[in-house]
Simulated scan of single mutants.
Amino acid sequence: MFGDFYITAWETFRYMFKRPVQWREFLHQAWFIASVSIVPTLLMSIPFCVMVIFQINLILSEIGGIDLSGSGAGVAVIREIGPIVTVLVVAGAGATAICADLGSRKIREELDATEVLGIDPIQRLVVPRVLAATVVALFLNGLVTAVGIVGGYIFSVYLQGATPGQFVSSLSLLTGTSDLAIGTLKAAIFGLLSGLVGCHLGIRVKGGPKGVGEAVNQTVVVSFILLFLANSVITTLTLHS
C-alpha cells in the first residue's frame, strides 16, 4: 500500500509541471471542495477557538494577566487551531468527496476508458484535485484564523473582562509573520496530503460499490494519521529552528 501511494505521489508531482494544465477541472474541483468545506469549517472553528481561548484566559486570569489574552489567542489560533481545523475539514469532507468521485469512476470503468484513449488519469483527474485541495486548504486556514481572532476578541473582552486595546496590542507579542507563514505552510501540506490520499484510494478502488465505501472510510483514517503526524513534525522542526 505504501509503495503504491509513493508511486501515486511521485506521478502527481511529475505531472504538475507538465502541459497541458487542466485549469477548468482545477477550478471546478476547487469550487466543489470549497462548497462542501466552508460550512463545516465555520461550524467547527467557532466552538473550537472559543474552547481553547477560554482555557488560556482562565490561566491568564489566575496570574492577573487577562489583558494578555490577545497573545494567547494569537498563538493558539495562528499556530495550531487554524491548521488543525483545516486538517479535520479537508480530510473529513474534501478528501472523502474526492475519493468517492474517483472511486465511482473506477468501478464504472471510466478510468480504464481514459487510459485506452491515451489519457493519463493522473494528469487529467488527480493533479487538478490535489492542487484544488491544497489551494482550498490555504483559504480555509485564513478563514479559520480570521474567525478565531474575532471570536477570541468577543469572548475575551465581553465575557472574561479583557481590555479591548490590550487584547489588540498584545496579539503580536508572541506571534508574527513567521508564525503566520508556518501556519499557512501547514495548511498547504495538509491539503496536499489529504488530496493525495483521497485520489490514491479512489483510483485503486476494488470490489464495486462496497469497495467505494471502504475506500472513503480508509481516506478519513489514513488522512488523519498522516496529517497529525505531519503537524507534529512541522511543529517540532519550526519550534527548534
Score class of each variant (00 low, 15 high):
Ile78Cys: 01
Ile81Cys: 03
Thr86Gly: 04
Val87His: 08
Val87Phe: 08
Leu88Glu: 02
Ala91Phe: 13
Gly92Phe: 11
Ala93Phe: 14
Ala97Tyr: 14
Ile98Ser: 03
Ile98Met: 13
Cys99Asn: 02
Cys99Lys: 04
Cys99Trp: 09
Cys99Thr: 13
Leu102His: 12
Arg105Leu: 09
Lys106Val: 05
Lys106Asn: 03
Glu109Asn: 10
Glu109Ser: 05
Glu110Leu: 04
Leu111Gly: 14
Asp112Met: 12
Asp112Cys: 05
Asp112Phe: 13
Glu115Lys: 15
Glu115His: 06
Glu115Ala: 06
Val116Thr: 12
Val116Asn: 13
Gly118Phe: 08
Arg124Ala: 15
Val126Pro: 06
Pro128Met: 02
Val135Ser: 11
Val135Trp: 07
Val136Leu: 08
Val136His: 13
Leu138Asn: 05
Phe139Lys: 13
Leu140Ser: 05
Gly142Glu: 12
Thr145Leu: 09
Val150Arg: 07
Gly151Thr: 15
Gly152Val: 04
Tyr153Val: 02
Ile154Arg: 10
Phe155Lys: 09
Leu159His: 07
Gly161Phe: 06
Gly165Thr: 00
Gln166Tyr: 01
Phe167Asp: 00
Val168Arg: 04
Val168Ser: 04
Ser169Gln: 10
Leu174Trp: 03
Ser178Asp: 05
Ser178Ile: 12
Ala181Lys: 02
Ile182Asp: 00
Leu185Glu: 00
Leu185Pro: 00
Ala187Ile: 02
Ala187Cys: 10
Ala188Ser: 15
Leu192Phe: 11
Leu193Ile: 10
Leu193Arg: 02
Leu193Glu: 01
Ser194Gln: 08
Ser194Ala: 14
Ser194Asn: 08
Leu196Ile: 05
Val197Met: 04
His200Tyr: 15
His200Leu: 06
Ile203Tyr: 04
Ile203Thr: 06
Ile203Ala: 03
